[in-house]
């Protein structure tokens, strides 16, 4: 097991190297001049040249690449053109918001998706099965941002149940502790016995999490169903039935434990995709995370920020995939014990 982990981590290195390389050259070779972006259209040639020298843009491309690589391995992604702050710092500030949203969305999607998939498989071709699979198919066919808007229209504007955006009631003048507002709210509750921060954080999280989680939910439900159907036809389910194990236990323990193997992989992939899907949802829900930030960075052609953002999101994506692979081998004894 230990050797497996080590081997997978070593295999990761060339991929990450490739990610950094691709991110660097895609932006370095793209039309447009970062110095011009920073100084605006009316800057003098002298100022432009000065800034280029300062940013190292006058050096040969390969040298810039080497320099960039050497900084990236120290987690230094340069300085944001737009804000003047270190990109690493900006990302670190915003990351908890995105992770919190993605985690909430994923918990919602996994739980609901698995339960729906299991119930649908149990009663194959029943009304519940047909209805939930039709809903799942519609779910994967929707534009996320449209769903987000429709949800805002119905639940925020129409029914006035949830706020339209943000992470916390702005009148609370809240100072984050960890950056994960749910956790922060909980800490405050423990320390001061005041639940209002926790409640407000939760209140703000529901709509974006559900919107972001809908597509993964649909996919997870579909995969769970087909995986369950396959497992329920296996011989060992017949054995369990002939041993008098109660149906409920057969479904949720004997079958589900096996059926979850492919589902775990799908959950991992979807979680990775959620981080990028956040570009759309965060923009709509004014959620101050990486997605919204990256969107504005792209809009402003803030090269260091875009490079940094891409590298970080892709790295997390790759790491999650690795984690899922490892988790898969932990829950699958046939791999674990090899």
């Amino acid at each position: 097991m230990g050797r497996l982990i080590l081997r997978r981590i070593v295999q990761l290195i060339p991929t990450l190297f490739g990610v950094v390389t691709l991110a660097f050259f895609m932006l370095a070779l793209s039309p447009g001049d970062p110095a011009r972006v920073m100084l605006g259209e009316r800057a003098s040639q002298a100022r432009l040249d000065e800034l280029r020298t300062q940013l190292g843009l006058d050096r040969p491309l390969i040298e810039q690449y080497g320099l960039y690589l050497s900084r990236v391995v120290q987690f230094d992604f340069g300085t944001s053109i737009k804000s003047g702050r270190a990109v690493t710092e900006e990302i670190a500030d915003l990351f908890p918001a995105t992770v919190e949203l993605a985690l909430a969305a994923m918990v919602f999607a996994s739980f609901t998706g698995i339960v729906l998939g299991v119930l649908a498989a149990r009663k194959k071709n029943s009304l519940l099965d047909t209805a939930s699979m039709a809903a799942a198919l519609i779910g994967v066919s929707m534009p996320v941002f449209w769903l987000a808007l429709v949800m805002i229209m119905i639940f925020s504007v129409g029914l006035n149940l949830f706020p339209t955006g943000g992470r916390m009631n702005i009148r609370y003048y809240f100072t984050p502790i960890t950056g994960f507002y749910l956790l922060d709210g909980f800490i405050v509750l423990l320390r001061e016995g005041d639940p209002k921060y926790l409640m407000s954080a939760l209140h703000h999280l529901v709509l974006p999490a559900v919107a972001l989680g809908t597509i993964p939910l649909a996919i997870i439900a579909r995969v769970t169903r087909s995986s369950m159907l396959e497992v329920l036809g296996q011989d060992y389910i017949k054995t369990a039935k002939s041993s008098g194990i109660p149906d409920f236990k057969i479904t949720f323990v004997y079958a589900l434990r096996n059926a979850l193997l492919p589902v775990v992989t799908v959950i991992g992939i979807q979680f990775g995709l959620l981080l990028s899907g956040a570009i759309l949802t965060e923009t709509i829900f004014a959620w101050p995370g990486i997605g919204k930030w990256l969107y504005h960075a792209i809009e402003a052609r803030d090269y260091p920020a875009v490079q940094g953002g891409i590298i970080v999101i892709s790295t997390v994506f790759v790491l999650i995939n690795l984690l899922v692979d490892l988790l898969y081998s932990v829950i699958n004894p046939r791999i674990r014990l090899q």
């Binding site: 011989d235 060992y236 017949k238 004997y254 096996n258």
Partner: peptide, 16 residues
């Protein structure tokens, strides 16, 4: 009343 089946390879639950 208990049963045993033809395929011992697939008749036991692989994850327990």
């Amino acid at each position: 009343i208990s049963m045993i089946f033809q395929e011992p390879m697939t008749s036991l639950n692989p994850v327990f």
